[in-house]
């Protein structure tokens, strides 16, 4: 009995962590499905199959709430920042180009806003970066919000369902997502412009060659690294960098330092976020007896990417260009 009770304590604790872990695992992965309403057709109503949920938007949303930086930045990129009535769960400061427009938008919560905080601003559309944002202890279940007349939309790249999860994520899917968001938000033309911009950015990139990398997102005991089918692989691939863990069929994965050391990558991509800075990652790499032996660490061949740019969205193309530039500056890949 005492032992069982202890087990209960552990199980009682796990859901919180598991949920959170799921949430953080849901980064970037758009749906392979293309919008059922074509991007060119600006006419409402628009209906899309979003991670298995039918979402119908009757008219262009006027009061939008975004959760996660990727969605906030998507709305800003579509030129609709003035329709935002609230944001939540920021992963970091927005890029300079949208900083002014977003400055005045109320922050509902630095985490996922609760249902009341959400309803108080009377949104007509809630745009979430992760499926897990829409849960009873988060912003609310999607069907509950629908009954209240609030449309919900999840970044399709974050769908976890078989058949909806992108496998692998590609820039074409990211562009589809941008177009779909444009259609739903009533800005199809702006979406096309954004996509055109991104395509231009990517075309201007001269992919590197012969550079290997490990994309280290978080974790110290068991590093959590970019794997074969998610945003890290998409970005590295477009930059012409070979991902050491490309063979692992997952978006991100936990590995051991042994594999990292054995692979001896040319560069280390360090994801930078407020709660897990690239600086702390460098300090760890340089103090750990095994990783400090890596050539990339001894020669400080680090490449930094902001966390918010590593989820599928409008910053991925710039990140590719940025990576190529950073690696080039290290004198590699030319």
């Amino acid at each position: 009995m005492p032992s069982r009770a202890r087990a209960l304590v552990v199980t009682a604790l796990l859901p919180v962590v598991a949920l959170a872990a799921c949430a953080s695992g849901g980064e970037g992965s758009p749906a392979p499905s293309s919008p059922s309403a074509s991007a060119a057709d600006a006419g409402f109503p628009v209906t899309v199959d979003n991670c298995g949920t039918q979402v119908t938007v009757e008219q262009a949303p006027e009061r939008i709430v975004t959760i996660k930086s990727s969605t906030t930045e998507m709305v800003a990129a579509l030129g609709l920042a003035d329709r935002l009535v609230g944001t939540g769960f920021s992963d970091g400061p927005p890029p300079q180009e949208w900083a002014d427009e977003l400055a005045g938008v109320p922050v509902l919560s630095d985490k996922v806003p609760g249902q009341e905080a959400l309803l108080e601003v009377e949104p007509d559309l809630v745009y979430g970066g992760w499926e897990s944002n829409f849960s009873a202890d988060g912003a609310g279940e999607r069907d509950v919000l629908a009954q209240l007349g609030i449309a919900t939309y999840v970044s399709p790249s974050a769908c976890k369902e078989e058949g909806y999860q992108p496998d692998p994520l590609t820039f074409d899917l990211v562009f589809d997502e941008i177009r779909q968001a444009g259609a739903l938000l009533g800005a199809p033309d702006a979406a096309e412009e954004v996509v055109a911009d991104q395509e231009a950015t990517l075309e201007a990139v001269e992919p590197l060659d012969g550079v290997t990398a490990v994309w280290w997102s978080s974790g110290t005991d068991t590093p959590y690294v970019g794997a074969g089918i998610g945003a890290p692989q998409m970005i590295l691939g477009a930059a012409g960098i070979e991902n050491v863990f490309a063979d692992v069929h997952d978006t991100w994965t936990s590995v051991g330092w042994e594999q990292v050391v054995a692979a001896d990558p040319d560069v280390l991509v360090l994801v930078d976020s407020a709660w897990n800075t690239a600086e702390s990652k460098q300090a760890f790499l340089e103090s750990h007896p095994a990783t400090s032996q890596l050539a990339a660490v001894r020669e400080r061949r680090y490449v930094l990417v902001p966390f918010a740019a590593t989820e599928a969205g409008v910053r991925n193309a710039d990140t590719v260009a940025d990576l190529v530039e950073q690696v080039g500056a290290l004198g590699l890949g030319g």
Binding site: V17, A21, S217, T220, D221, T222
Partner: peptide
């Protein structure tokens, strides 16, 4: 649970989860 709830950021959970389940990786 409270600490985790209160600081629900990023994916530091993965580390916590692995720690709660026991790991010799580090």
């Amino acid at each position: 649970s409270f600490v985790i709830f209160w600081t629900a950021t990023g994916d530091s959970y993965r580390e916590i989860l692995s720690w709660l389940m026991g790991s010799l990786a580090g």
